[in-house]
């Protein structure tokens, strides 16, 4: 359960302060499938980073699973990211020098799982995204769509209850993008408790979500549930 109350986010730019989020209220329940849309620069990624505990809001409250995130230490934030949140980036953000499976293993390793356990979990996650036969490939030896699948497997390996995807199809062609979306949906069918929040520019992609939140100039312009 995500509860965002009147959140603002400002960046210091030398002398000036740039306010990106101007007081956002948003509540997302477990198991929802939400698309966030909006023009470029409207603050979508900034909001996602706050939701994903990668960044702290300047003012306002963010409660994640009844816990006030603004009170958490760096270490506890890291733990939240590790246990409860899976992040999928537009640019994949895989580590290039290690195998796909090792990439997927990393969150499990930071969670303190044993070698055999995380081998098993990472293999299972790779199979779940359809890459059971690409375990030992390095990221650059995979196609863009396959790399994004690896990133999704990495996001899923610790069974988070929130999957965040910031333009996950942005770097992919439309056919591959569609496959990634199909994958997201099948993941939610398998695990209905998992919340999926994705940022997109693509209205076709957004149309597949049950709820569409539209952001404009750092404020929620509309929030429609189909």
């Amino acid at each position: 359960m995500i509860e965002i109350l009147n959140i603002t986010k400002s960046f210091k730019m030398g002398e000036n302060v740039l306010t990106v989020l101007h007081g956002v209220d948003l509540t997302i329940k477990a198991g929802e499938y939400v698309a966030i849309i909006g023009p470029s620069g409207s603050g979508k990624s900034t909001l996602m980073n706050v939701i994903g505990c990668l960044d702290k809001p300047t003012t306002g409250h963010y409660r994640l699973n009844q816990q006030d995130v603004s009170q958490l230490s760096e270490k506890e934030l890291a733990r939240q990211r590790n246990k409860n949140i899976g992040f999928v980036f537009q640019r994949f953000n895989l580590l290039g020098k290690i195998s796909a499976q090792r990439n997927v293993e990393l969150p499990a390793q930071y969670a303190g799982m044993s070698l055999s356990q995380r081998r098993m979990l990472s293999q299972r996650a790779m199979e779940a995204v359809g890459l059971g036969d690409r375990l030992d490939h390095r990221p650059l030896e995979l196609s863009g769509g396959q790399q994004q699948r690896v990133a999704i497997a990495r996001a899923l390996v610790n069974r988070p209850n929130i999957l965040l995807a910031d333009e996950p199809t942005g770097a992919l062609d439309s056919k591959t993008g569609k496959e990634i979306m199909d994958l997201f949906e099948s993941l939610q069918v398998q695990n209905p408790e998992m919340t999926i929040i994705l940022v997109t520019h693509d209205h076709d992609v957004a149309a597949r979500a049950k709820r569409v939140v539209s952001i404009r100039d750092g404020l929620i312009a509309s929030d429609i549930t189909n």
């Binding site: 994903g52 760096e74 890291a78 590790n82 992040f87 953000n93 580590l95 930071y110 969670a111 990495r154």
Partner: peptide
């Protein structure tokens, strides 16, 4: 730097 960002994003704490 990016590697560190990735590691942090997936749950590495500063001490680690």
């Amino acid at each position: 730097t990016r590697e560190i960002g990735v590691r942090k994003a997936i749950g590495a704490d500063p001490a680690t």
